[in-house]
């Protein structure tokens, strides 16, 4: 696979992150960096799946928001369907992240063209 920093503008994937960290942590095999990133993400998913919050200073916090039961509609048939209440993940950016991101407001962002 090609290094992705070059061929896809303004979109960073998990493998890009792994590559960037591996470059800086050259004493660690990139396999370890890959496992570490996956381990961090798995812990985060696991925490949320068990109803636990995630708090990362300067980055932000993740919590669950409750969505009450509602009546939905099957878009194909128009039939109503009862949807039960559920939890959805919610992210609140921290102060540092908010400020850093906003410092470049007005400069170009590439949005997903899909």
């Amino acid at each position: 696979m090609l290094p992705q920093y070059l061929d896809r503008e303004n979109e960073v994937t998990k493998s890009d992150l792994i590559e960037a960290i591996a470059k800086q942590q050259s004493h660690l095999p990139s396999r370890d960096v890959e496992l570490a990133v996956k381990c961090i993400l798995e812990q985060m998913s696991q925490a949320l799946a068990s109803g636990e919050r995630i708090e990362i200073r300067g980055f932000g916090s993740f919590s669950l928001h409750y969505r009450p039961p509602r009546t939905g509609r099957n878009p194909k048939t128009g039939e109503s369907v009862a949807l039960s209440g559920k939890y959805v993940p919610h992210f609140k950016p921290g102060k540092e992240l908010r400020e850093r991101v906003n410092s470049n407001a007005g400069r170009e962002i590439q949005t997903d063209s899909k």
Partner: peptide, 22 residues
């Protein structure tokens, strides 16, 4: 490693890049 993980995400967003973690 944990520090860098979050720092890279912040840095990418600061530079105007979307971050996709499948």
């Amino acid at each position: 490693m944990v520090e860098m993980f979050f720092e890279k995400i912040k840095g990418s967003l600061e530079e105007g890049g979307q971050v996709k973690l499948s």
